[in-house]
Measured scan of single mutants.
Amino acid sequence: HMTFVALYDYVASGETDLSFKKGERLQIVNNTEGDWWLAHSLTTGRTGYISSNYVAPSD
Results as ranks from 00 to 15, higher is better:
residue 46 R to Y: 07
residue 35 D to W: 07
residue 8 Y to F: 12
residue 26 L to W: 01
residue 32 T to M: 12
residue 51 S to K: 15
residue 59 D to V: 12
residue 39 A to I: 05
residue 17 D to H: 14
residue 45 G to D: 05
residue 54 Y to K: 06
residue 26 L to K: 00
residue 5 V to A: 02
residue 4 F to L: 06
residue 2 M to A: 10
residue 32 T to V: 10
residue 44 T to A: 03
residue 6 A to L: 03
residue 18 L to I: 07
residue 31 N to Q: 14
residue 4 F to N: 00
residue 56 A to P: 05
residue 51 S to W: 15
residue 26 L to T: 01
residue 35 D to E: 13
residue 54 Y to S: 14
residue 44 T to V: 03
residue 36 W to T: 11
residue 7 L to T: 05
residue 7 L to N: 03
residue 48 G to Q: 03
residue 23 G to D: 05
residue 49 Y to K: 05
residue 34 G to Q: 10
residue 33 E to N: 14
residue 51 S to V: 05
residue 31 N to Y: 14
residue 58 S to H: 12
residue 50 I to N: 01
residue 37 W to T: 02
residue 49 Y to W: 14
residue 37 W to N: 02
residue 59 D to N: 12
residue 26 L to A: 00
residue 18 L to N: 01
residue 11 V to L: 08
residue 54 Y to H: 11
residue 28 I to D: 01
residue 55 V to T: 03
residue 45 G to K: 05
residue 2 M to E: 10
residue 3 T to N: 07
residue 11 V to D: 12
residue 46 R to W: 10
residue 23 G to C: 07
residue 27 Q to M: 13
residue 31 N to M: 15
residue 20 F to C: 04
residue 7 L to W: 04
residue 7 L to P: 02
residue 56 A to H: 07
residue 51 S to R: 15
residue 34 G to Y: 06
residue 21 K to F: 08
residue 8 Y to E: 09
residue 53 N to D: 12
residue 57 P to N: 07
residue 21 K to R: 10
residue 18 L to G: 01
residue 52 S to K: 15
residue 2 M to S: 09
residue 55 V to G: 04
residue 22 K to C: 07
residue 12 A to Y: 02
residue 38 L to N: 01
residue 25 R to M: 15
residue 34 G to T: 09
residue 5 V to I: 14
residue 10 Y to M: 05
residue 36 W to K: 14
residue 7 L to A: 03
residue 57 P to S: 09
residue 23 G to H: 04
residue 8 Y to K: 08
residue 3 T to P: 05
residue 8 Y to N: 06
residue 50 I to D: 00
residue 24 E to M: 01
residue 32 T to A: 10
residue 28 I to K: 06
residue 47 T to Y: 11
residue 4 F to E: 00
residue 52 S to W: 07
residue 50 I to T: 01
residue 9 D to S: 06
residue 1 H to V: 13
residue 38 L to K: 03
residue 57 P to L: 12
residue 30 N to V: 10
residue 47 T to S: 08
residue 32 T to H: 09
residue 41 S to H: 05
residue 21 K to W: 05
residue 8 Y to M: 11
residue 20 F to A: 01
residue 16 T to I: 08
residue 12 A to D: 01
residue 33 E to T: 13
residue 9 D to C: 04
residue 42 L to M: 08
residue 6 A to Q: 00
residue 51 S to A: 09
residue 9 D to F: 04
residue 41 S to L: 02
residue 45 G to A: 02
residue 56 A to E: 11
residue 41 S to G: 03
residue 17 D to M: 15
residue 36 W to A: 08
residue 9 D to G: 06
residue 9 D to Q: 01
residue 20 F to Q: 00
residue 45 G to N: 07
residue 51 S to F: 14
residue 53 N to V: 13
residue 49 Y to F: 10
residue 56 A to D: 06
residue 5 V to M: 06
residue 43 T to G: 05
residue 11 V to P: 04
residue 16 T to R: 13
residue 52 S to F: 07
residue 19 S to M: 05
residue 18 L to Y: 02
residue 53 N to L: 14
residue 32 T to E: 10
residue 29 V to A: 06
residue 8 Y to R: 11
residue 58 S to N: 09
residue 53 N to S: 14
residue 59 D to L: 12
residue 9 D to I: 05
residue 32 T to K: 13
residue 1 H to K: 10
residue 33 E to C: 13
residue 25 R to F: 15
residue 49 Y to H: 05
residue 14 G to K: 15
residue 20 F to T: 01
residue 41 S to T: 03
residue 41 S to Y: 12
residue 19 S to G: 06
residue 7 L to F: 03
residue 37 W to I: 08
residue 11 V to I: 12
residue 27 Q to I: 15
residue 11 V to E: 13
residue 52 S to A: 13
residue 41 S to E: 01
residue 20 F to Y: 07
residue 8 Y to A: 09
residue 52 S to V: 09
residue 5 V to H: 04
residue 38 L to V: 06
residue 22 K to S: 06
residue 7 L to C: 09
residue 29 V to P: 04
residue 15 E to C: 11
residue 43 T to D: 15
residue 17 D to Q: 15
residue 23 G to E: 02
residue 40 H to V: 15
residue 21 K to E: 09
residue 39 A to E: 01
residue 30 N to D: 14
residue 27 Q to R: 11
residue 59 D to P: 14
residue 42 L to F: 08
residue 48 G to M: 04
residue 51 S to G: 07
residue 22 K to M: 07
residue 2 M to I: 11
residue 42 L to N: 05
residue 56 A to M: 12
residue 10 Y to C: 10
residue 33 E to R: 12
residue 57 P to G: 06
residue 29 V to I: 15
residue 46 R to C: 06
residue 34 G to I: 06
residue 47 T to F: 10
residue 3 T to W: 13
residue 1 H to T: 13
residue 3 T to H: 10
residue 30 N to E: 13
residue 50 I to L: 06
residue 51 S to P: 15
residue 39 A to G: 04
residue 21 K to P: 01
residue 12 A to G: 11
residue 23 G to W: 05
residue 17 D to V: 08
residue 46 R to S: 07
residue 56 A to N: 06
residue 48 G to T: 02
residue 17 D to F: 15
residue 17 D to I: 08
residue 25 R to S: 08
residue 55 V to F: 11
residue 55 V to N: 02
residue 39 A to R: 00
residue 35 D to C: 12
residue 32 T to S: 12
residue 5 V to P: 00
residue 6 A to N: 00
residue 56 A to K: 11
residue 36 W to F: 11
residue 24 E to K: 01
residue 25 R to H: 14
residue 39 A to Q: 00
residue 31 N to C: 14
residue 58 S to I: 15
residue 15 E to V: 09
residue 29 V to E: 07
residue 44 T to H: 02
residue 44 T to S: 10
residue 30 N to P: 06
residue 24 E to S: 00
residue 26 L to P: 00
residue 7 L to S: 02
residue 32 T to I: 10
residue 21 K to I: 08
residue 2 M to W: 10
residue 15 E to K: 11
residue 38 L to H: 03
residue 20 F to I: 06
residue 1 H to M: 12
residue 43 T to S: 11
residue 58 S to Q: 12
residue 27 Q to E: 13
residue 43 T to V: 11
residue 53 N to Y: 14
residue 26 L to R: 00
residue 19 S to R: 02
residue 24 E to N: 01
residue 2 M to C: 12
residue 22 K to P: 01
residue 13 S to E: 12
residue 19 S to T: 09
residue 53 N to P: 07
residue 57 P to F: 11
residue 19 S to E: 06
residue 57 P to A: 10
residue 12 A to I: 03
residue 5 V to T: 08
residue 48 G to P: 00
residue 5 V to W: 04
residue 55 V to H: 03
residue 6 A to P: 00
residue 6 A to G: 04
residue 31 N to F: 15
residue 54 Y to A: 15
residue 51 S to L: 15
residue 16 T to A: 12
residue 34 G to H: 08
residue 38 L to S: 03
residue 35 D to Y: 08
residue 22 K to F: 04
residue 15 E to F: 07
residue 21 K to M: 10
residue 55 V to P: 03
residue 30 N to A: 10
residue 50 I to S: 00
residue 6 A to F: 01
residue 29 V to H: 15
residue 43 T to I: 08
residue 38 L to A: 01
residue 16 T to V: 09
residue 5 V to L: 07
